[in-house]
Amino acid sequence: MLEFIRDLFLMDGQGKYVWFVLLIFFIVICFNYYLPYRAIRKIKEENSQHTGE
């Protein structure tokens, strides 16, 4: 099991390329998820301030 995980990470020295690509991919995807989330939260906050006053 441990052997398998180590192989998965190293991939005969090519692991860095594969994992780097996956990392970039997930960063971009998460960023794209986060932006609309933040925008909606902002709209809601502004709205609650408006009604609160």
């Binding site: 005969d12 390329y17 594969v18």
Partner: peptide
């Protein structure tokens, strides 16, 4: 190519 071809699983779909 060995294991580095596994980038294909991100590269081709995108």
């Amino acid at each position: 190519q060995g294991d580095v071809y596994r980038i294909i699983f991100v590269h081709v779909p995108s």
